[in-house]
Design a protein around this nucleic acid. Structure first.
Lengths: 189, 189
DNA sequence: TCGACTTGCAGAATATTGTTCTGGTGGCCC
DNA sequence: GGGCCACCAGAACAATATTCTGCAAGTCGA
Protein backbone atom coordinates (compact mmCIF):
# COMPACT_ATOMS: atom_id res chain seq x y z
CA UNK A 1 0.00 0.00 0.00
CA UNK A 2 2.81 2.39 -0.84
CA UNK A 3 0.82 4.99 -2.68
CA UNK A 4 2.96 7.84 -1.51
CA UNK A 5 3.54 9.31 -4.96
CA UNK A 6 -0.03 8.94 -6.03
CA UNK A 7 -1.31 10.62 -2.91
CA UNK A 8 1.15 13.46 -3.22
CA UNK A 9 -0.23 14.17 -6.67
CA UNK A 10 -3.81 14.07 -5.48
CA UNK A 11 -3.13 16.41 -2.59
CA UNK A 12 -1.38 18.89 -4.85
CA UNK A 13 -4.11 18.57 -7.46
CA UNK A 14 -6.74 19.37 -4.89
CA UNK A 15 -5.12 22.69 -4.17
CA UNK A 16 -4.19 23.60 -7.73
CA UNK A 17 -7.45 22.52 -9.32
CA UNK A 18 -9.32 24.36 -6.62
CA UNK A 19 -7.40 27.57 -7.08
CA UNK A 20 -6.68 27.65 -10.82
CA UNK A 21 -9.17 25.21 -12.24
CA UNK A 22 -8.34 22.06 -14.15
CA UNK A 23 -7.67 23.88 -17.40
CA UNK A 24 -5.42 26.41 -15.72
CA UNK A 25 -3.26 23.78 -14.08
CA UNK A 26 -0.36 22.54 -16.16
CA UNK A 27 1.13 19.14 -15.66
CA UNK A 28 4.56 20.50 -14.86
CA UNK A 29 3.17 22.67 -12.11
CA UNK A 30 1.24 19.76 -10.76
CA UNK A 31 4.41 17.68 -10.80
CA UNK A 32 6.46 20.47 -9.34
CA UNK A 33 3.95 21.02 -6.53
CA UNK A 34 3.89 17.35 -5.71
CA UNK A 35 7.59 16.72 -6.26
CA UNK A 36 6.95 13.83 -8.62
CA UNK A 37 8.80 12.97 -11.80
CA UNK A 38 7.25 12.50 -15.22
CA UNK A 39 7.79 8.77 -15.05
CA UNK A 40 6.30 8.48 -11.62
CA UNK A 41 3.28 10.49 -12.62
CA UNK A 42 2.47 8.35 -15.62
CA UNK A 43 3.11 5.28 -13.58
CA UNK A 44 0.17 6.17 -11.35
CA UNK A 45 -2.13 7.94 -13.78
CA UNK A 46 -2.99 7.47 -17.42
CA UNK A 47 -3.01 11.24 -17.85
CA UNK A 48 -4.34 14.48 -16.50
CA UNK A 49 -7.92 13.43 -17.00
CA UNK A 50 -7.49 10.44 -14.75
CA UNK A 51 -6.26 12.68 -11.96
CA UNK A 52 -9.44 14.68 -12.34
CA UNK A 53 -11.55 11.58 -12.14
CA UNK A 54 -9.71 10.12 -9.15
CA UNK A 55 -9.93 13.38 -7.27
CA UNK A 56 -13.57 13.73 -8.16
CA UNK A 57 -14.32 10.31 -6.78
CA UNK A 58 -12.38 11.03 -3.62
CA UNK A 59 -14.13 14.34 -3.01
CA UNK A 60 -17.60 13.13 -3.78
CA UNK A 61 -17.11 10.12 -1.55
CA UNK A 62 -16.22 12.40 1.34
CA UNK A 63 -19.16 14.66 0.64
CA UNK A 64 -21.72 11.94 0.20
CA UNK A 65 -20.68 9.97 3.23
CA UNK A 66 -20.87 13.05 5.44
CA UNK A 67 -24.22 13.87 3.85
CA UNK A 68 -25.70 10.49 4.64
CA UNK A 69 -24.31 10.53 8.16
CA UNK A 70 -25.97 13.87 8.76
CA UNK A 71 -29.23 12.81 7.18
CA UNK A 72 -29.50 9.69 9.33
CA UNK A 73 -29.33 11.71 12.50
CA UNK A 74 -32.81 13.06 11.92
CA UNK A 75 -36.06 11.32 12.53
CA UNK A 76 -38.22 14.32 11.91
CA UNK A 77 -38.38 15.06 8.18
CA UNK A 78 -38.70 18.79 8.62
CA UNK A 79 -35.59 18.93 10.72
CA UNK A 80 -33.77 16.59 8.39
CA UNK A 81 -34.55 18.64 5.31
CA UNK A 82 -33.31 21.86 6.90
CA UNK A 83 -30.30 20.19 8.46
CA UNK A 84 -29.11 18.81 5.18
CA UNK A 85 -29.42 22.17 3.50
CA UNK A 86 -27.29 23.68 6.24
CA UNK A 87 -24.91 20.77 6.00
CA UNK A 88 -24.40 21.34 2.30
CA UNK A 89 -23.56 25.01 2.66
CA UNK A 90 -21.31 24.46 5.64
CA UNK A 91 -19.50 21.65 3.93
CA UNK A 92 -18.70 24.00 1.06
CA UNK A 93 -17.54 26.70 3.45
CA UNK A 94 -15.31 24.25 5.30
CA UNK A 95 -13.87 22.52 2.25
CA UNK A 96 -13.72 25.29 -0.31
CA UNK A 97 -11.08 23.59 -2.47
CA UNK A 98 -12.97 20.34 -2.66
CA UNK A 99 -16.26 22.10 -3.17
CA UNK A 100 -14.93 24.38 -5.88
CA UNK A 101 -13.55 21.41 -7.67
CA UNK A 102 -16.71 19.33 -7.28
CA UNK A 103 -19.23 22.00 -8.09
CA UNK A 104 -17.60 24.28 -10.60
CA UNK A 105 -15.88 21.78 -12.87
CA UNK A 106 -17.61 19.72 -15.47
CA UNK A 107 -17.99 16.26 -13.91
CA UNK A 108 -16.05 13.46 -15.61
CA UNK A 109 -17.91 10.43 -16.87
CA UNK A 110 -16.20 7.53 -15.10
CA UNK A 111 -18.20 4.45 -14.18
CA UNK A 112 -17.13 4.42 -10.55
CA UNK A 113 -18.80 7.79 -10.25
CA UNK A 114 -22.17 6.64 -11.54
CA UNK A 115 -21.92 3.65 -9.26
CA UNK A 116 -21.34 5.82 -6.23
CA UNK A 117 -24.12 8.15 -7.24
CA UNK A 118 -26.53 5.29 -7.53
CA UNK A 119 -25.65 4.10 -4.04
CA UNK A 120 -25.92 7.60 -2.65
CA UNK A 121 -29.30 8.31 -4.17
CA UNK A 122 -30.44 4.95 -2.92
CA UNK A 123 -29.64 5.97 0.63
CA UNK A 124 -31.37 9.30 0.32
CA UNK A 125 -34.36 7.72 -1.33
CA UNK A 126 -34.68 5.23 1.49
CA UNK A 127 -34.80 8.01 4.06
CA UNK A 128 -37.26 9.91 1.96
CA UNK A 129 -39.58 7.00 1.45
CA UNK A 130 -39.96 6.18 5.11
CA UNK A 131 -41.38 9.64 5.58
CA UNK A 132 -43.51 9.51 2.49
CA UNK A 133 -44.96 6.37 3.94
CA UNK A 134 -45.92 8.21 7.08
CA UNK A 135 -47.48 10.96 5.00
CA UNK A 136 -45.01 13.60 6.09
CA UNK A 137 -43.41 14.11 2.70
CA UNK A 138 -44.97 14.20 -0.76
CA UNK A 139 -44.35 11.55 -3.34
CA UNK A 140 -42.35 13.67 -5.71
CA UNK A 141 -40.05 12.00 -8.14
CA UNK A 142 -36.55 11.97 -6.77
CA UNK A 143 -35.14 14.47 -9.23
CA UNK A 144 -37.75 17.11 -8.55
CA UNK A 145 -37.44 16.58 -4.83
CA UNK A 146 -33.70 16.81 -5.00
CA UNK A 147 -33.53 20.07 -6.92
CA UNK A 148 -36.17 21.68 -4.73
CA UNK A 149 -34.36 20.53 -1.66
CA UNK A 150 -30.79 21.45 -2.50
CA UNK A 151 -30.95 23.57 -5.65
CA UNK A 152 -30.99 26.93 -3.88
CA UNK A 153 -28.22 25.97 -1.48
CA UNK A 154 -26.20 24.60 -4.35
CA UNK A 155 -26.62 27.75 -6.39
CA UNK A 156 -25.70 29.88 -3.41
CA UNK A 157 -22.54 27.86 -2.91
CA UNK A 158 -21.61 28.11 -6.53
CA UNK A 159 -21.94 31.87 -6.46
CA UNK A 160 -19.78 32.03 -3.37
CA UNK A 161 -17.21 29.62 -4.72
CA UNK A 162 -16.93 31.75 -7.84
CA UNK A 163 -16.32 34.79 -5.70
CA UNK A 164 -19.46 36.54 -6.83
CA UNK A 165 -21.09 36.98 -3.43
CA UNK A 166 -19.89 37.38 0.17
CA UNK A 167 -19.79 34.49 2.61
CA UNK A 168 -23.30 33.27 3.46
CA UNK A 169 -24.39 33.93 7.03
CA UNK A 170 -26.19 31.66 9.45
CA UNK A 171 -29.52 33.40 9.06
CA UNK A 172 -29.32 33.08 5.30
CA UNK A 173 -28.58 29.37 5.60
CA UNK A 174 -31.46 28.87 8.02
CA UNK A 175 -33.77 30.69 5.66
CA UNK A 176 -32.85 28.33 2.85
CA UNK A 177 -33.63 25.39 5.10
CA UNK A 178 -37.08 26.64 5.99
CA UNK A 179 -37.78 27.56 2.38
CA UNK A 180 -36.78 24.10 1.20
CA UNK A 181 -39.30 22.63 3.55
CA UNK A 182 -42.08 24.86 2.26
CA UNK A 183 -41.15 24.09 -1.33
CA UNK A 184 -41.23 20.35 -0.74
CA UNK A 185 -44.11 19.97 1.60
CA UNK A 186 -46.74 21.87 -0.30
CA UNK A 187 -46.83 19.90 -3.48
CA UNK A 188 -48.58 16.65 -4.11
CA UNK A 189 -48.19 14.56 -7.19
CA UNK B 1 -18.07 46.22 -39.38
CA UNK B 2 -16.47 43.37 -41.30
CA UNK B 3 -16.30 40.84 -38.53
CA UNK B 4 -16.81 37.90 -40.78
CA UNK B 5 -13.84 35.89 -39.56
CA UNK B 6 -14.51 36.69 -35.95
CA UNK B 7 -18.13 35.64 -36.22
CA UNK B 8 -17.24 32.41 -37.96
CA UNK B 9 -15.03 31.52 -35.02
CA UNK B 10 -17.73 32.36 -32.50
CA UNK B 11 -20.34 30.30 -34.31
CA UNK B 12 -18.03 27.30 -34.50
CA UNK B 13 -16.99 27.76 -30.89
CA UNK B 14 -20.60 27.70 -29.77
CA UNK B 15 -21.08 24.28 -31.25
CA UNK B 16 -17.73 22.81 -30.25
CA UNK B 17 -17.68 24.22 -26.73
CA UNK B 18 -21.21 23.03 -26.24
CA UNK B 19 -20.49 19.52 -27.42
CA UNK B 20 -16.94 18.88 -26.22
CA UNK B 21 -16.44 21.53 -23.58
CA UNK B 22 -13.83 24.25 -23.66
CA UNK B 23 -11.05 21.97 -22.47
CA UNK B 24 -11.88 19.32 -25.04
CA UNK B 25 -11.83 21.73 -27.95
CA UNK B 26 -8.45 22.20 -29.57
CA UNK B 27 -7.56 25.33 -31.41
CA UNK B 28 -6.91 23.54 -34.68
CA UNK B 29 -10.36 21.96 -34.60
CA UNK B 30 -11.87 25.31 -33.83
CA UNK B 31 -10.00 26.80 -36.76
CA UNK B 32 -10.82 23.90 -39.00
CA UNK B 33 -14.52 24.13 -38.12
CA UNK B 34 -14.58 27.84 -38.79
CA UNK B 35 -12.26 27.77 -41.80
CA UNK B 36 -9.99 30.40 -40.35
CA UNK B 37 -6.21 30.54 -40.49
CA UNK B 38 -3.88 30.82 -37.54
CA UNK B 39 -3.05 34.40 -38.37
CA UNK B 40 -6.64 35.37 -38.78
CA UNK B 41 -7.57 33.78 -35.50
CA UNK B 42 -4.94 35.62 -33.53
CA UNK B 43 -5.80 38.78 -35.34
CA UNK B 44 -9.25 38.68 -33.79
CA UNK B 45 -8.60 37.02 -30.46
CA UNK B 46 -5.76 37.17 -27.97
CA UNK B 47 -6.16 33.43 -27.44
CA UNK B 48 -8.57 30.68 -26.64
CA UNK B 49 -9.60 32.27 -23.37
CA UNK B 50 -10.75 35.39 -25.11
CA UNK B 51 -13.02 33.35 -27.35
CA UNK B 52 -14.55 31.88 -24.23
CA UNK B 53 -15.14 35.28 -22.79
CA UNK B 54 -16.60 36.75 -25.96
CA UNK B 55 -18.92 33.82 -26.39
CA UNK B 56 -19.92 33.98 -22.78
CA UNK B 57 -20.85 37.62 -23.11
CA UNK B 58 -22.81 36.93 -26.25
CA UNK B 59 -24.75 34.05 -24.71
CA UNK B 60 -25.49 35.72 -21.46
CA UNK B 61 -26.66 38.84 -23.24
CA UNK B 62 -29.16 36.76 -25.20
CA UNK B 63 -30.33 34.97 -22.09
CA UNK B 64 -30.65 38.01 -19.90
CA UNK B 65 -32.46 40.09 -22.46
CA UNK B 66 -35.00 37.34 -23.06
CA UNK B 67 -35.32 36.94 -19.29
CA UNK B 68 -36.09 40.59 -18.73
CA UNK B 69 -38.52 40.68 -21.63
CA UNK B 70 -40.38 37.76 -20.14
CA UNK B 71 -40.33 39.17 -16.65
CA UNK B 72 -41.79 42.50 -17.75
CA UNK B 73 -44.82 40.81 -19.22
CA UNK B 74 -46.17 40.03 -15.77
CA UNK B 75 -47.91 42.34 -13.40
CA UNK B 76 -48.89 39.70 -10.93
CA UNK B 77 -45.83 38.61 -8.91
CA UNK B 78 -47.03 35.07 -8.47
CA UNK B 79 -47.43 34.61 -12.19
CA UNK B 80 -44.16 36.36 -12.86
CA UNK B 81 -42.20 34.14 -10.51
CA UNK B 82 -43.55 30.96 -12.03
CA UNK B 83 -43.25 32.24 -15.58
CA UNK B 84 -39.61 33.06 -15.19
CA UNK B 85 -38.86 29.63 -13.77
CA UNK B 86 -40.52 28.09 -16.79
CA UNK B 87 -38.71 30.50 -19.05
CA UNK B 88 -35.37 29.48 -17.65
CA UNK B 89 -35.93 25.78 -18.19
CA UNK B 90 -37.40 26.25 -21.65
CA UNK B 91 -34.57 28.53 -22.68
CA UNK B 92 -32.13 25.78 -21.76
CA UNK B 93 -34.14 23.21 -23.66
CA UNK B 94 -34.30 25.43 -26.73
CA UNK B 95 -30.68 26.55 -26.70
CA UNK B 96 -28.86 23.54 -25.33
CA UNK B 97 -25.47 24.54 -26.75
CA UNK B 98 -25.60 28.01 -25.34
CA UNK B 99 -26.99 26.78 -22.04
CA UNK B 100 -24.44 24.04 -21.69
CA UNK B 101 -21.71 26.52 -22.30
CA UNK B 102 -23.13 29.13 -19.94
CA UNK B 103 -24.09 26.87 -17.10
CA UNK B 104 -21.58 24.06 -17.07
CA UNK B 105 -18.36 25.95 -17.74
CA UNK B 106 -16.49 27.97 -15.19
CA UNK B 107 -17.43 31.58 -15.92
CA UNK B 108 -14.56 33.82 -17.04
CA UNK B 109 -13.78 36.96 -15.08
CA UNK B 110 -13.99 39.72 -17.69
CA UNK B 111 -15.20 43.16 -16.70
CA UNK B 112 -17.84 43.43 -19.40
CA UNK B 113 -19.48 40.45 -17.77
CA UNK B 114 -19.73 41.99 -14.32
CA UNK B 115 -21.06 45.14 -15.95
CA UNK B 116 -23.80 43.24 -17.73
CA UNK B 117 -24.64 41.33 -14.58
CA UNK B 118 -24.98 44.50 -12.64
CA UNK B 119 -27.41 45.89 -15.19
CA UNK B 120 -29.36 42.66 -15.29
CA UNK B 121 -29.73 42.38 -11.55
CA UNK B 122 -30.74 46.00 -11.48
CA UNK B 123 -33.64 45.24 -13.80
CA UNK B 124 -34.75 42.24 -11.81
CA UNK B 125 -34.43 44.11 -8.58
CA UNK B 126 -36.60 46.91 -9.91
CA UNK B 127 -39.38 44.48 -10.76
CA UNK B 128 -39.01 42.82 -7.40
CA UNK B 129 -39.17 46.02 -5.46
CA UNK B 130 -42.38 47.26 -6.97
CA UNK B 131 -44.03 44.15 -5.60
CA UNK B 132 -42.30 44.34 -2.27
CA UNK B 133 -43.69 47.80 -2.02
CA UNK B 134 -47.19 46.48 -2.50
CA UNK B 135 -46.56 43.85 0.13
CA UNK B 136 -46.84 40.94 -2.26
CA UNK B 137 -43.23 39.83 -2.00
CA UNK B 138 -40.95 39.63 1.03
CA UNK B 139 -37.95 41.88 1.44
CA UNK B 140 -35.32 39.21 1.05
CA UNK B 141 -31.87 40.21 0.04
CA UNK B 142 -31.47 39.78 -3.66
CA UNK B 143 -29.09 36.84 -3.47
CA UNK B 144 -31.33 34.76 -1.25
CA UNK B 145 -34.34 35.61 -3.33
CA UNK B 146 -32.51 34.74 -6.51
CA UNK B 147 -31.31 31.32 -5.40
CA UNK B 148 -34.71 30.40 -3.98
CA UNK B 149 -36.35 31.52 -7.15
CA UNK B 150 -34.14 29.94 -9.75
CA UNK B 151 -31.84 27.57 -7.89
CA UNK B 152 -33.99 24.47 -8.37
CA UNK B 153 -34.63 25.18 -12.04
CA UNK B 154 -30.97 25.89 -12.57
CA UNK B 155 -29.92 22.66 -10.91
CA UNK B 156 -32.45 20.72 -12.92
CA UNK B 157 -31.10 22.22 -16.12
CA UNK B 158 -27.55 21.45 -15.18
CA UNK B 159 -28.42 17.83 -14.54
CA UNK B 160 -30.15 17.63 -17.89
CA UNK B 161 -27.36 19.41 -19.73
CA UNK B 162 -24.89 16.94 -18.27
CA UNK B 163 -27.01 14.10 -19.53
CA UNK B 164 -27.77 12.79 -16.07
CA UNK B 165 -31.54 12.99 -16.22
CA UNK B 166 -34.20 12.78 -18.95
CA UNK B 167 -35.78 15.85 -20.50
CA UNK B 168 -37.93 17.71 -17.97
CA UNK B 169 -41.64 17.64 -18.66
CA UNK B 170 -44.20 20.41 -18.47
CA UNK B 171 -45.68 19.23 -15.20
CA UNK B 172 -42.26 19.11 -13.62
CA UNK B 173 -41.55 22.66 -14.77
CA UNK B 174 -44.90 23.88 -13.46
CA UNK B 175 -44.21 22.24 -10.13
CA UNK B 176 -40.93 24.10 -9.82
CA UNK B 177 -42.73 27.35 -10.52
CA UNK B 178 -45.31 26.80 -7.81
CA UNK B 179 -42.66 25.63 -5.37
CA UNK B 180 -40.56 28.72 -6.03
CA UNK B 181 -43.52 30.85 -5.11
CA UNK B 182 -44.06 29.01 -1.84
CA UNK B 183 -40.37 29.22 -1.01
CA UNK B 184 -40.28 32.96 -1.61
CA UNK B 185 -43.58 34.07 -0.26
CA UNK B 186 -43.44 32.46 3.15
CA UNK B 187 -40.37 34.09 4.52
CA UNK B 188 -40.04 37.51 6.02
CA UNK B 189 -36.81 39.17 6.97
C1' DT C 1 -2.41 59.35 -57.91
C1' DC C 2 0.83 58.50 -54.65
C1' DG C 3 2.07 56.49 -50.48
C1' DA C 4 1.73 56.00 -45.47
C1' DC C 5 -1.53 53.49 -42.85
C1' DT C 6 -5.00 50.15 -41.39
C1' DT C 7 -7.54 45.86 -41.46
C1' DG C 8 -7.85 41.10 -42.43
C1' DC C 9 -5.56 37.30 -43.53
C1' DA C 10 -1.92 33.31 -44.53
C1' DG C 11 1.30 30.05 -42.83
C1' DA C 12 6.13 29.07 -41.22
C1' DA C 13 8.51 29.18 -36.98
C1' DT C 14 8.60 28.77 -32.13
C1' DA C 15 7.11 27.95 -27.30
C1' DT C 16 4.52 25.43 -24.21
C1' DT C 17 2.40 21.46 -22.65
C1' DG C 18 1.21 16.49 -22.60
C1' DT C 19 2.60 11.68 -23.37
C1' DT C 20 5.62 7.82 -24.50
C1' DC C 21 9.79 5.26 -24.07
C1' DT C 22 13.90 3.45 -22.27
C1' DG C 23 16.02 2.35 -18.44
C1' DG C 24 17.45 2.12 -13.45
C1' DT C 25 16.75 1.29 -8.72
C1' DG C 26 15.46 -1.68 -4.70
C1' DG C 27 12.55 -5.13 -2.62
C1' DC C 28 10.56 -9.88 -2.72
C1' DC C 29 9.96 -14.66 -3.95
C1' DC C 30 11.75 -19.08 -5.78
C1' DG D 1 21.58 -15.65 -7.94
C1' DG D 2 17.91 -14.48 -11.08
C1' DG D 3 13.38 -13.45 -12.49
C1' DC D 4 9.73 -10.39 -11.37
C1' DC D 5 7.48 -6.20 -10.02
C1' DA D 6 6.27 -1.64 -8.09
C1' DC D 7 8.21 2.73 -8.23
C1' DC D 8 10.70 6.24 -10.11
C1' DA D 9 13.88 9.29 -13.30
C1' DG D 10 14.31 11.96 -17.31
C1' DA D 11 15.30 12.12 -22.36
C1' DA D 12 12.67 11.87 -26.49
C1' DC D 13 8.61 12.74 -28.84
C1' DA D 14 3.88 14.45 -30.06
C1' DA D 15 0.24 17.58 -29.73
C1' DT D 16 -1.23 22.10 -28.97
C1' DA D 17 -0.94 27.09 -28.35
C1' DT D 18 1.20 31.34 -29.66
C1' DT D 19 4.32 34.53 -32.09
C1' DC D 20 6.29 36.38 -36.09
C1' DT D 21 6.95 37.84 -40.75
C1' DG D 22 4.78 39.17 -44.63
C1' DC D 23 1.14 40.04 -48.16
C1' DA D 24 -3.19 41.98 -50.34
C1' DA D 25 -6.83 45.08 -50.45
C1' DG D 26 -8.89 49.08 -48.76
C1' DT D 27 -8.84 54.21 -47.17
C1' DC D 28 -7.59 58.64 -46.37
C1' DG D 29 -5.13 62.87 -46.76
C1' DA D 30 -1.85 65.64 -49.53
Amino acid sequence: MTEIGRDKVLRAALELFGRDGVAGTTLSRLRQASGVSVGSFYHHFAGKEEVVEALFVECIALYQSAFVTELRRYEDPREGVAAVVAFHVRWCLEHPDRARFLFTERPPGGSELTERNRAFFGEVLAWWRTHVHHGALPELDLVTAFVLWLGPAQELCRLWLNGEIPTPGNDQIARLGRAAWRALEGDQR
